[in-house]
Design a protein around this nucleic acid. Structure first.
Lengths: 163, 163
DNA sequence: TCATTTGGTTTTAATTTGCAACCAATATAT
DNA sequence: ATATATTGGTTGCAAATTAAAACCAAATGA
């Protein structure tokens, strides 16, 4: 992994776990039901030493659980925890953006469909409590309880610059 | 950037652009209204040679537009294009996950609020056309028009493994 | 005219990636 | 019981990338 981000920011925090070229592919494999080291390795093309390291990180972060499927052995299944499952909307958002903007409509490699209707999943978007789609202008970013001084200042600058 | 992903997959396609430690922070800065090289550099902590390279990639991908703010000079503003703006839901999803799972409730560095009500933005989640929240089980992944043979096979395996 | 700012480039050391060979322990086949 | 295959790595090393610091040309401001 590259330099670790230390400033208090949710995006930076995510990058401390996912800010490399492979980890989202490992997560994709987990959502596709892959559990074994060589299964994940084969389906992603990742180098074995890198995969070993990334799995360690994901287990340490509580995103995957390592389960011994032998008996005191060297056979493990890596399964999503509840924390790992909570990545689903993020993965869907990445997936939808990739379909639309990397491949383009009509060229999507993998479609996301509603099981009940067979129709394409609607794009994930911020919505209000009464169900209305929200735009960027409808959303504020504000310092939260965990904000550092630097974060408070950055958000104030952002507010001034976008107003 | 590390090894380029060549298999046809929306997540892999996204990682070919964003699969490093800094690019999402550059995008965050763009959404916060930062436009100048040193502004982005200061607010992220990124090395200048790396930032120069990442900005090149984002401009080449049509996500940021480089605008000469002098006259035939060396002063540029980097602004989000429509394609860049379309990253907003992805950034929000990352942001919400980071708030919830990296920092935890009560410790969020940056709150996302609905401007109209001042209340926290609802978590982004897949929803049906009639507004119902969808679970993982409600969503199918199917080969799309741009699917490779390998992708078709992988999705069939995933189907079998998750059924 | 001089100083400062901007957006880099270059150099170099440190770190990470990726490949291939190798390994220990377990499971399977004979 | 023994040999073979599988699993999940580790190791060594070369290549690639990152990161820091110094440096640079051109534009802008004093």
């Amino acid at each position: 992994m590259a330099k670790r981000h230390t400033h208090t920011c949710p995006i930076a925090g995510v990058l401390n776990i996912f800010g490399d070229n492979w980890t989202w592919l490992v997560i994709r494999e987990a959502f596709y039901g892959a559990t074994r080291f060589s299964e994940i390795q084969r389906n992603t093309g990742i180098a074995k030493n890198v995969l070993s390291d990334r799995l360690d990180v994901l287990v340490n972060e509580g995103i995957l659980a390592r389960e011994d499927v032998g008996e005191n052995g060297t056979r493990y299944a890596y399964r999503l925890t509840a924390k790992g499952e909570s990545l689903h909307p993020v993965l869907l958002a990445l997936h939808q953006w990739g379909n639309e903007h990397v491949y383009g409509p009509g060229n999507e490699p993998v479609l996301l469909l509603e099981r009940a209707t067979g129709k394409p999943l609607q794009p994930l978007a911020p919505t209000s409590r009464n169900g209305r789609r929200l735009t960027r202008a409808d959303i504020l970013t504000r310092p939260g309880p965990g904000a550092s001084k630097a974060t408070v200042r950055r958000l104030a600058e952002a507010d001034a610059s976008l107003a």
